[in-house]
């Protein structure tokens, strides 16, 4: 019974784990519906590019006296922020980013710390 509430997919609204075949079916539904997202691929460049040392192990172009090696790597931070932000926006659970603030929460103390 409990499973029904978390998924719209017909295969997983069954309340049992079922035969191996059913499980497999549920698995693919689940992965597409809930966790797996093509947007996650966007995170890959943010992991790979900062590791490509030959790309930035150079002095030119300099910026405010900084060799490229230094300002270039700091600039990759923006790449990381941009990709994680986009993937978050595209994969977040709630449509409204502030929903979890306005939602009745588990206690007043919960909001106090924000």
């Amino acid at each position: 019974m409990v499973d029904r509430s978390i998924s719209e997919s017909p295969a997983s609204s069954r309340g049992d784990t079922g035969s191996p075949d059913q499980t497999r079916q549920r698995k693919s539904d689940r992965q597409q519906g809930n966790d797996r997202s093509a947007w996650n691929w966007l995170l890959l460049p943010a992991i790979v590019i900062p590791l490509l040392v030959p790309l930035y192990n150079r002095i030119e172009p300099t910026l405010f006296g900084w060799p490229f090696f230094y300002w270039g790597q700091l600039a990759f931070i923006a790449l990381g922020v941009a990709t994680t932000s986009v993937v978050y926006q595209k994969t977040k659970t709630r449509k409204d980013p502030d929903a979890d603030r306005s939602r009745p929460s588990t206690g007043a103390a919960d909001r106090k710390g924000r």
């Binding site: 890959l44 900062p50 090696f69 990381g80 990709t83 994680t84 993937v87």
Partner: peptide, 15 residues
């Protein structure tokens, strides 16, 4: 300066 790429790639991996 390895600390910089280290702490950049950290977050997509965490994610």
């Amino acid at each position: 300066f390895f600390a910089v790429p280290y702490t950049i790639i950290l977050y997509p991996i965490f994610f």
